[in-house]
């Protein structure tokens, strides 16, 4: 009986879990934690359509000759039912009970800050007449990666917001103001960062702290760091994680 009920409603319950979660994230402006903004409308519209169909399907009496059950030996059926219940329960906890969350700084370390030169190069902003005030971490990182334009920004002042990750080549004196760049969904998030020279930064700003940094680009005073240009900050302040933590 239990296995029969589960087989019939498992899919619909899972659908509703995904739908309620999606619509709630959309309504509270948190879809950006998981997917690129270009999918917001499509995702919410399909969720609403799916929701209407799923609820309507509840009203549908099963056809008398419906083949719902898996053709399983009686022995395996108990495990199958248990697995199905666990899947529904785990999905409910993950989608509805846990608070939405961003990727941790630990995954930024695993993915190598600024390893994605090409994606930065493609989107590199033009420097002449640009509004530097509007530059994001991604824009500055792209400028720093391109040998042609990097030289021309020495002395340029910049304000950046992101979380702190260490520069592996000089972890005591240099850190990155880091953001994840998302092209499709959080799975493809790549960390990009702007290096900041601040000896002893760990004491005030532990890894993963969100900071606002203001300062000017200068030749890196650190001799061991592999970064050529860094921001030498005039102010560095801790700040709240912004509502949209990723850049797109």
């Amino acid at each position: 009986m239990a296995s029969r009920l589960l087989a019939r409603w498992r899919g619909l319950v899972l659908a509703l879990l995904g739908i309620v979660s999606t619509v709630w994230l959309g309504a509270t402006g948190q879809l950006g934690l998981y997917i690129h903004p270009r999918y917001y409308v499509f995702t919410v519209v399909m969720a609403v359509i799916g929701g209407v169909l799923a609820v309507a399907t509840f009203a549908l009496a099963p056809a008398p000759d419906e083949h719902d059950e898996e053709e399983l030996p009686a022995r395996g059926r108990g495990w199958w039912t248990l697995g199905g219940l666990l899947l529904v329960a785990a999905s409910a906890v993950a989608l509805l009970a846990l608070p939405p969350s961003t990727l941790s700084a630990a995954s930024a370390a695993d993915r190598d800050v600024n390893s994605s030169d090409a994606v930065l190069a493609v989107d590199a902003p033009t420097l002449s007449g640009a509004d530097y005030g509007a530059f994001t971490v991604k824009d500055w990182a792209a400028v720093l990666r391109s040998p042609a334009s990097a030289g021309s920004i020495e002395g340029q002042r910049a304000t950046v917001k992101g979380f702190v990750t260490p520069d592996e080549t000089d972890p005591d004196n240099v850190f990155y103001v880091t953001r994840f760049v998302v092209t499709c969904c959080a799975v493809d998030a790549q960390p990009v960062g702007v290096p900041v020279y601040l000896p002893g930064w760990r004491e005030d700003f532990p890894v993963e702290t969100w900071v606002d940094v203001e300062g000017a680009f200068a030749t890196n005073p650190s001799v061991v760091s592999s970064e050529a240009l860094v921001i030498v900050p005039s102010t560095t302040e801790t700040t709240e994680q912004p509502a949209e933590p990723y850049v797109f």
């Binding site: 995904g18 998981y34 399909m46 993950a94 990727l103 941790s104």
Partner: peptide, 30 residues
């Protein structure tokens, strides 16, 4: 549901859940 981010302390576990939800929310409409 509580809005406290630190319900699950381990980074790896939280990341695995975040990534799984991200794959799911991306694919579900399709």
């Amino acid at each position: 549901a509580p809005a406290d981010e630190q319900v699950i302390a381990a980074d790896a576990a939280r990341d695995a859940i975040t990534l799984a939800i991200s794959v799911l929310i991306e694919s579900l409409p399709f």
